[in-house]
Protein backbone atom coordinates (compact mmCIF):
# COMPACT_ATOMS: atom_id res chain seq x y z
CA UNK A 1 0.00 0.00 0.00
CA UNK A 2 2.98 2.31 0.16
CA UNK A 3 3.41 4.25 -3.05
CA UNK A 4 6.02 6.39 -4.72
CA UNK A 5 8.14 8.41 -2.33
CA UNK A 6 6.38 11.74 -1.85
CA UNK A 7 8.14 14.60 -3.53
CA UNK A 8 10.35 16.54 -1.16
CA UNK A 9 8.60 19.87 -1.16
CA UNK A 10 10.20 23.16 -0.51
CA UNK A 11 8.35 25.28 2.01
CA UNK A 12 5.95 27.59 0.28
CA UNK A 13 6.20 31.37 0.43
CA UNK A 14 3.42 33.22 2.27
CA UNK A 15 0.14 33.58 0.34
CA UNK A 16 -0.04 36.77 -1.75
CA UNK A 17 -1.20 40.06 -0.22
CA UNK A 18 -5.03 40.17 0.11
CA UNK A 19 -5.20 43.64 -1.44
CA UNK A 20 -3.27 42.47 -4.49
CA UNK A 21 -5.57 39.48 -4.83
CA UNK A 22 -8.56 41.83 -4.40
CA UNK A 23 -7.35 44.06 -7.24
CA UNK A 24 -6.88 40.96 -9.44
CA UNK A 25 -10.41 39.91 -8.55
CA UNK A 26 -11.75 43.37 -9.47
CA UNK A 27 -10.35 42.88 -12.94
CA UNK A 28 -12.11 39.53 -13.50
CA UNK A 29 -15.28 40.81 -11.81
CA UNK A 30 -15.39 43.72 -14.28
CA UNK A 31 -14.81 41.41 -17.24
CA UNK A 32 -17.62 39.17 -16.05
CA UNK A 33 -19.95 42.11 -15.43
CA UNK A 34 -19.47 43.79 -18.78
CA UNK A 35 -19.66 40.51 -20.71
CA UNK A 36 -22.99 39.60 -19.19
CA UNK A 37 -25.07 41.75 -21.49
CA UNK A 38 -28.37 41.26 -19.66
CA UNK A 39 -26.92 42.53 -16.38
CA UNK A 40 -25.29 45.51 -18.10
CA UNK A 41 -28.50 46.52 -19.86
CA UNK A 42 -30.50 46.01 -16.67
CA UNK A 43 -28.14 48.03 -14.48
CA UNK A 44 -27.62 50.93 -16.89
CA UNK A 45 -30.94 51.24 -18.65
CA UNK A 46 -33.41 51.41 -15.78
CA UNK A 47 -32.28 54.77 -14.38
CA UNK A 48 -31.80 56.18 -17.89
CA UNK A 49 -35.24 55.05 -19.05
CA UNK A 50 -36.89 56.40 -15.90
CA UNK A 51 -35.08 59.70 -16.35
CA UNK A 52 -36.05 60.07 -19.99
CA UNK A 53 -39.70 59.23 -19.25
CA UNK A 54 -40.06 61.39 -16.15
CA UNK A 55 -38.12 64.35 -17.44
CA UNK A 56 -39.98 64.07 -20.74
CA UNK A 57 -43.39 64.04 -19.04
CA UNK A 58 -42.68 66.69 -16.36
CA UNK A 59 -40.63 69.24 -18.23
CA UNK A 60 -42.32 72.43 -17.05
CA UNK A 61 -40.18 75.08 -15.43
CA UNK A 62 -40.59 75.42 -11.68
CA UNK A 63 -42.31 78.74 -11.03
CA UNK A 64 -40.07 81.83 -10.82
CA UNK A 65 -36.83 79.85 -10.52
CA UNK A 66 -35.61 79.41 -14.07
CA UNK A 67 -35.04 75.73 -13.26
CA UNK A 68 -36.91 73.05 -15.15
CA UNK A 69 -38.37 69.95 -13.46
CA UNK A 70 -36.38 67.79 -15.87
CA UNK A 71 -33.14 69.22 -14.46
CA UNK A 72 -34.23 68.27 -10.95
CA UNK A 73 -35.02 64.72 -12.06
CA UNK A 74 -31.68 64.49 -13.86
CA UNK A 75 -29.80 65.47 -10.68
CA UNK A 76 -31.75 63.14 -8.37
CA UNK A 77 -31.58 60.22 -10.79
CA UNK A 78 -27.79 60.09 -10.41
CA UNK A 79 -28.39 58.77 -6.88
CA UNK A 80 -30.70 56.04 -8.22
CA UNK A 81 -28.10 55.17 -10.86
CA UNK A 82 -25.50 54.64 -8.16
CA UNK A 83 -27.91 52.52 -6.17
CA UNK A 84 -28.59 50.42 -9.27
CA UNK A 85 -24.87 49.93 -9.91
CA UNK A 86 -24.14 49.01 -6.28
CA UNK A 87 -27.11 47.79 -4.26
CA UNK A 88 -28.91 46.01 -7.12
CA UNK A 89 -25.88 44.60 -8.93
CA UNK A 90 -24.22 43.35 -5.71
CA UNK A 91 -27.44 42.03 -4.20
CA UNK A 92 -28.20 39.93 -7.28
CA UNK A 93 -24.54 39.24 -8.16
CA UNK A 94 -23.57 37.80 -4.77
CA UNK A 95 -26.75 35.71 -4.60
CA UNK A 96 -25.65 34.30 -7.95
CA UNK A 97 -22.07 33.71 -6.72
CA UNK A 98 -23.58 31.73 -3.87
CA UNK A 99 -25.64 29.61 -6.29
CA UNK A 100 -23.14 28.96 -9.06
CA UNK A 101 -20.29 27.81 -6.82
CA UNK A 102 -18.09 30.95 -6.98
CA UNK A 103 -18.10 31.38 -3.20
CA UNK A 104 -17.63 27.67 -2.55
CA UNK A 105 -14.65 27.59 -4.88
CA UNK A 106 -13.08 30.61 -3.20
CA UNK A 107 -13.46 29.06 0.23
CA UNK A 108 -11.41 26.12 -1.00
CA UNK A 109 -8.54 28.33 -2.19
CA UNK A 110 -6.18 30.77 -0.44
CA UNK A 111 -8.25 33.75 -1.65
CA UNK A 112 -9.43 35.43 1.56
CA UNK A 113 -12.93 36.83 1.73
CA UNK A 114 -11.44 40.30 2.21
CA UNK A 115 -10.13 40.02 -1.34
CA UNK A 116 -13.53 38.93 -2.63
CA UNK A 117 -15.12 42.04 -1.11
CA UNK A 118 -12.32 44.34 -2.27
CA UNK A 119 -12.92 42.98 -5.78
CA UNK A 120 -16.66 43.62 -5.54
CA UNK A 121 -16.29 47.15 -4.13
CA UNK A 122 -13.72 48.16 -6.76
CA UNK A 123 -15.99 46.72 -9.45
CA UNK A 124 -19.03 48.71 -8.30
CA UNK A 125 -16.93 51.88 -8.01
CA UNK A 126 -16.03 51.55 -11.68
CA UNK A 127 -19.56 50.59 -12.73
CA UNK A 128 -21.05 53.45 -10.67
CA UNK A 129 -18.65 55.90 -12.25
CA UNK A 130 -19.67 54.71 -15.73
CA UNK A 131 -23.33 54.93 -14.75
CA UNK A 132 -22.89 58.52 -13.52
CA UNK A 133 -21.10 59.49 -16.73
CA UNK A 134 -24.00 58.08 -18.78
CA UNK A 135 -26.60 59.88 -16.66
CA UNK A 136 -24.69 63.17 -16.78
CA UNK A 137 -24.39 62.88 -20.56
CA UNK A 138 -28.12 62.19 -20.92
CA UNK A 139 -28.96 64.93 -18.41
CA UNK A 140 -26.78 67.49 -20.12
CA UNK A 141 -27.60 66.45 -23.66
CA UNK A 142 -31.37 66.10 -23.36
CA UNK A 143 -32.43 68.06 -20.31
CA UNK A 144 -30.00 70.95 -20.08
CA UNK A 145 -28.46 69.83 -16.77
CA UNK A 146 -25.91 72.50 -15.73
CA UNK A 147 -22.51 71.09 -14.81
CA UNK A 148 -21.00 73.18 -11.99
CA UNK A 149 -17.79 75.08 -12.67
CA UNK A 150 -16.58 75.61 -9.10
CA UNK A 151 -14.30 73.24 -7.17
CA UNK A 152 -16.49 73.18 -4.04
CA UNK A 153 -19.43 71.69 -5.92
CA UNK A 154 -17.26 68.96 -7.44
CA UNK A 155 -15.80 68.19 -4.01
CA UNK A 156 -19.32 67.78 -2.67
CA UNK A 157 -20.07 65.61 -5.68
CA UNK A 158 -16.99 63.47 -4.91
CA UNK A 159 -17.78 62.79 -1.27
CA UNK A 160 -21.47 62.15 -1.87
CA UNK A 161 -20.45 59.72 -4.63
CA UNK A 162 -17.88 57.85 -2.53
CA UNK A 163 -19.98 57.64 0.65
CA UNK A 164 -23.07 56.74 -1.38
CA UNK A 165 -21.28 53.98 -3.29
CA UNK A 166 -19.84 52.47 -0.11
CA UNK A 167 -23.09 52.65 1.87
CA UNK A 168 -25.21 51.20 -0.97
CA UNK A 169 -22.61 48.54 -1.79
CA UNK A 170 -22.58 47.32 1.82
CA UNK A 171 -26.39 47.27 1.88
CA UNK A 172 -26.30 45.29 -1.37
CA UNK A 173 -23.94 42.74 0.19
CA UNK A 174 -26.24 42.52 3.21
CA UNK A 175 -29.44 42.07 1.18
CA UNK A 176 -27.81 39.35 -0.96
CA UNK A 177 -28.32 37.02 2.00
CA UNK A 178 -32.10 37.53 2.00
CA UNK A 179 -33.20 35.70 -1.19
CA UNK A 180 -33.08 31.91 -0.93
CA UNK A 181 -31.66 31.56 -4.43
CA UNK A 182 -30.36 33.62 -7.33
CA UNK A 183 -33.68 33.14 -9.15
CA UNK A 184 -35.64 35.05 -6.53
CA UNK A 185 -32.89 37.62 -5.95
CA UNK A 186 -33.90 40.30 -8.43
CA UNK A 187 -37.51 40.29 -7.20
CA UNK A 188 -36.39 40.63 -3.57
CA UNK A 189 -33.92 43.38 -4.40
CA UNK A 190 -35.98 45.45 -6.87
CA UNK A 191 -38.75 45.98 -4.32
CA UNK A 192 -36.76 48.17 -1.90
CA UNK A 193 -34.94 49.79 -4.84
CA UNK A 194 -38.14 50.98 -6.55
CA UNK A 195 -39.92 51.70 -3.26
CA UNK A 196 -37.12 53.92 -1.99
CA UNK A 197 -37.03 55.89 -5.23
CA UNK A 198 -40.63 56.96 -4.61
CA UNK A 199 -40.07 58.10 -1.03
CA UNK A 200 -36.57 59.55 -1.48
CA UNK A 201 -37.40 62.31 -3.92
CA UNK A 202 -36.08 60.57 -7.01
CA UNK A 203 -39.31 59.66 -8.81
CA UNK A 204 -41.34 62.26 -6.91
CA UNK A 205 -40.64 65.94 -7.04
CA UNK A 206 -40.41 67.92 -4.88
CA UNK A 207 -39.75 65.64 -1.92
CA UNK A 208 -41.39 68.17 0.41
CA UNK A 209 -44.71 67.40 -1.28
CA UNK A 210 -44.69 63.86 0.15
CA UNK A 211 -46.55 63.14 3.39
CA UNK A 212 -44.29 63.39 6.37
CA UNK A 213 -44.41 59.68 7.44
CA UNK A 214 -43.10 58.73 3.98
CA UNK A 215 -40.39 61.37 4.14
CA UNK A 216 -39.40 60.11 7.57
CA UNK A 217 -39.05 56.54 6.32
CA UNK A 218 -37.13 57.72 3.26
CA UNK A 219 -34.82 59.82 5.43
CA UNK A 220 -33.64 56.71 7.25
CA UNK A 221 -31.99 55.33 4.10
CA UNK A 222 -29.04 56.64 2.08
CA UNK A 223 -30.86 57.20 -1.24
CA UNK A 224 -32.73 60.31 -0.02
CA UNK A 225 -29.50 61.91 1.14
CA UNK A 226 -27.59 61.04 -1.99
CA UNK A 227 -30.33 62.51 -4.21
CA UNK A 228 -30.35 65.65 -2.06
CA UNK A 229 -26.56 65.84 -2.31
CA UNK A 230 -26.62 65.69 -6.11
CA UNK A 231 -29.36 68.31 -6.25
CA UNK A 232 -27.12 70.56 -4.17
CA UNK A 233 -24.38 70.11 -6.76
CA UNK A 234 -26.42 70.58 -9.93
CA UNK A 235 -29.16 73.02 -8.87
CA UNK A 236 -28.84 76.64 -7.77
CA UNK A 237 -29.09 77.31 -4.02
CA UNK A 238 -32.38 79.10 -4.68
CA UNK A 239 -33.94 75.62 -5.05
CA UNK A 240 -33.51 74.76 -1.38
CA UNK A 241 -37.08 75.94 -0.76
CA UNK A 242 -38.20 72.60 -2.23
CA UNK A 243 -36.24 70.58 0.32
CA UNK A 244 -37.83 69.26 3.48
CA UNK A 245 -35.55 71.27 5.76
CA UNK A 246 -35.38 74.28 3.46
CA UNK A 247 -31.62 73.82 3.07
CA UNK A 248 -29.20 71.29 1.54
CA UNK A 249 -28.22 69.94 5.01
CA UNK A 250 -24.76 68.90 3.85
CA UNK A 251 -23.44 68.27 7.37
CA UNK A 252 -26.32 66.00 8.33
CA UNK A 253 -26.05 64.26 4.96
CA UNK A 254 -22.38 63.45 5.52
CA UNK A 255 -23.11 62.10 9.01
CA UNK A 256 -25.98 59.89 7.90
CA UNK A 257 -24.13 58.49 4.87
CA UNK A 258 -21.02 57.82 6.99
CA UNK A 259 -23.20 56.14 9.62
CA UNK A 260 -24.61 53.87 6.90
CA UNK A 261 -21.08 52.95 5.85
CA UNK A 262 -20.34 51.77 9.40
CA UNK A 263 -23.78 50.27 10.02
CA UNK A 264 -23.77 48.54 6.64
CA UNK A 265 -20.42 46.94 7.44
CA UNK A 266 -21.73 45.64 10.76
CA UNK A 267 -24.88 44.35 9.03
CA UNK A 268 -22.75 42.51 6.45
CA UNK A 269 -20.59 40.90 9.11
CA UNK A 270 -23.64 39.77 11.06
CA UNK A 271 -25.73 38.43 8.19
CA UNK A 272 -23.37 37.22 5.46
CA UNK A 273 -23.92 33.60 4.39
CA UNK A 274 -21.59 31.47 2.28
CA UNK A 275 -24.28 29.08 1.17
CA UNK A 276 -27.72 29.53 -0.36
CA UNK A 277 -30.92 28.27 1.26
CA UNK A 278 -30.67 24.83 -0.31
CA UNK A 279 -27.05 23.97 0.43
CA UNK A 280 -26.70 22.28 3.80
Amino acid sequence: MTTQAPRVRQTRPAPPNPIKVGVARASIELKQFFRERDAVVFTFSLPVVLLVLLAGIFSDPVEKTGVEASQIFAASMIAAGIMSATFVSLGTGIAQDRDDGTLKRLRGTPTPMTSYFIGKILMVLVVSFAEVVVLLAVGKGLFDLKLPTDVTSWLTFAWVFVLGVIACALLGIAISSVPRSAKSASAVIMLPFIGLQFISGVLTNPISALSSPLVEIGSVFPLKWMAQGFRSVFLPDSMTFQEVAGSWELGRMALILAAWCVGGLVLCLLTFRWKNGRQG
Partner: peptide, 25 residues
Protein backbone atom coordinates in the same frame (compact mmCIF):
# COMPACT_ATOMS: atom_id res chain seq x y z
CA UNK B 1 -15.88 19.70 -6.10
CA UNK B 2 -19.12 18.78 -7.83
CA UNK B 3 -21.45 21.02 -9.81
CA UNK B 4 -19.76 24.38 -10.15
CA UNK B 5 -21.10 26.66 -12.87
CA UNK B 6 -19.15 29.80 -12.03
CA UNK B 7 -16.96 32.02 -14.22
CA UNK B 8 -19.14 31.40 -17.29
CA UNK B 9 -18.19 34.73 -18.88
CA UNK B 10 -14.43 34.28 -18.50
CA UNK B 11 -12.22 32.38 -20.91
CA UNK B 12 -10.45 29.24 -19.76
CA UNK B 13 -7.12 31.06 -19.88
CA UNK B 14 -8.44 34.03 -17.89
CA UNK B 15 -9.89 31.98 -15.06
CA UNK B 16 -6.94 29.59 -14.76
CA UNK B 17 -4.51 32.53 -15.06
CA UNK B 18 -6.38 34.46 -12.36
CA UNK B 19 -6.41 31.62 -9.85
CA UNK B 20 -2.71 31.00 -10.48
CA UNK B 21 -1.91 34.46 -9.11
CA UNK B 22 -3.83 33.79 -5.90
CA UNK B 23 -1.45 30.99 -4.80
CA UNK B 24 1.98 31.44 -3.24
CA UNK B 25 3.35 28.91 -5.72
Amino acid sequence: AQTASDAAELTVREVVGHFATTYPR
